[in-house]
Write a protein that binds this DNA or RNA. Sequence first.
DNA 1: ACCGATCAGGCAAGGGCTTTCCCGGCGGCG
DNA 2: CGCCGCCGGGAAAGCCCTTGCCTGATCGGT
Lengths: 335, 335
Amino acid sequence: MATLADVARRAGVSPATASRVINGSSKPVADELRERVLKAVAELRYVPNAHAQLLARPQRSVVGVLVHDVSDPYFAEVTRGLQRVATERGRLVIICNSYRDPDREVEYVDLLRAQQVAAIVLAGSGYHDPTVNALLDERLAAYAATGGRVAVIGRHRHRGDAVLPANEEGARLLGAELRRLGHRTVGVLAGPRSLTTTSDRIAGLGAGLGEPLPEARIRYADFTRDGGSRAAAELLDATPGLTAIVALNDSMAVGALNLLRARGVRVPAQVSVVGFDDMPIAADVTPALTTVRLPLAELGARAMTLALEPAAGRDRVESLPAELVRRDSLGPAPA
Amino acid sequence: MATLADVARRAGVSPATASRVINGSSKPVADELRERVLKAVAELRYVPNAHAQLLARPQRSVVGVLVHDVSDPYFAEVTRGLQRVATERGRLVIICNSYRDPDREVEYVDLLRAQQVAAIVLAGSGYHDPTVNALLDERLAAYAATGGRVAVIGRHRHRGDAVLPANEEGARLLGAELRRLGHRTVGVLAGPRSLTTTSDRIAGLGAGLGEPLPEARIRYADFTRDGGSRAAAELLDATPGLTAIVALNDSMAVGALNLLRARGVRVPAQVSVVGFDDMPIAADVTPALTTVRLPLAELGARAMTLALEPAAGRDRVESLPAELVRRDSLGPAPA
DNA sequence: ACCGATCAGGCAAGGGCTTTCCCGGCGGCG
DNA sequence: CGCCGCCGGGAAAGCCCTTGCCTGATCGGT
């Protein structure tokens, strides 16, 4: 690997001069020397060692992003927004997947700290477990204390600027719509109990329906298609007179749709199904999914924007609205 | 930010000893000193500066991954495989999105080089443009020349170990199946012309059908749902007697399906539709999509494995098979 | 009781880059 | 004609960490 010294030697100048040419220092360099340096750079295919640079000039230009799983469409979309802003601002992004393991999350925070990243963006639902939260908080605090910037998406209870999707409000909208259409016996396909997203959405749904949801009508499973399918089967078997199934994300809703089709249940004539998040797939299944749109990319973009701004006096909190998207999978309750 | 010197001072030892305690050197340290150091580390929330570490001990532990766009399900899946192996091996992954811009790709290679990454994995279709390829190749060569490892996924014409999806073979399978079912007037929804993936799949398809595809039956567009929808509309309008549409990826196929539904064309009774890649969505649309499964996560996993192994004498090439997945969207050609 | 072997700990040399400070040479001004 | 100020270039310190080498001390053997 060619070093700056190699370049300088080849160009017949000092490393100082070479450095100044290469990263356009304010200090002027004679044209001839500049030429010679650039020539040497090209010939040696020199690329400065980023670690050495960062050590010498602690100008932090990379941002760490911590998500549950990039290949999940939810995070893919959030990440898209994050990346867009980061790219506009000339920042490199390191993406880490915690795979929903809180311990791994803490590890990654330390790892990003070690990388001297300019900011850490934490995306995705938080956990209920107070031990976990305390541990994570402590690490984030240590990071923030040394000037690191922290932004969180959809996690109310952490330090740092926060961007919140209107989980509760969106679910309320959904609940109100179900009620308007006469649904009284509603079942819920919920994500893992440990996630705050799950409980927020359940709470909002109850509020919209006008009555709290009996625990017996909630089935907890993974936020996946298969999770949705299994949970829907259980719910159906256990609940006579069920007229609507609310899946707490679209993947689960798609799983439910598949199960109902396999069982020959007509949607929405016999049972309505609604989802959450408005992933691209929601529009493409049959019947097209009624769901709640969350501006995911926008969420990411806002979070990155906050993360790249200097810290405000106190933690900022922004909330982005949810919107009901009416499609075909929700109809009036059968008589 | 606390430094090693701070820790050492607080523990009343030399930085050397502190360092040895912290990263478990083989050199023994007395229990009492070790305790003191660990205590200081905890109290100061010390995390070693990764850049300084990398400078001092050039043990390269991060791997760069360059994809077109992580939020595209194709790359999401490939990335999942890459990450799995990287995590198993204790490597950190930096993901960069080129957004299909070849220039940005070159930039990112340099950036990863600057980061002293242990390996670079290039995923996604290559380009036809020889200028672009030459530039990229030159940069990769410079990297490889200094001991960097390079692995590419689905790009035949680059240096470095390669893992290739059976694009051509998969398309051939598809073509043969269409032919068997009596389809003679087949249209193609192709991705961008500049990508080798597009041409490989077209070539395979022609081979399977038993006759080369007339250019008039190919429509080039983006590898997206909307691209597929638009291209399908054009194709349908321009081709009387069309009995089957081959989309060169599943997103385009879904777009086509939507368009056909909107126009009241029955699938597969009137027109068959097939996709490519077997994305998760393929099973969830109606009718479920007949498509070609590419082991995408496996592709990523193999590429990462190769990248993390020491270089072989010459570039290795592995090919992973494609498999025809029969679902409902392909039927016999109408009489 | 002495010598050599063994062991734990510290010193200091990098690793590649940036940047401050300094120096020599030039031009302009008095 | 002499001095000052300015300007372009280089020497060197420092960023934070690891590790080879050395030293002082302890211990065992004779």
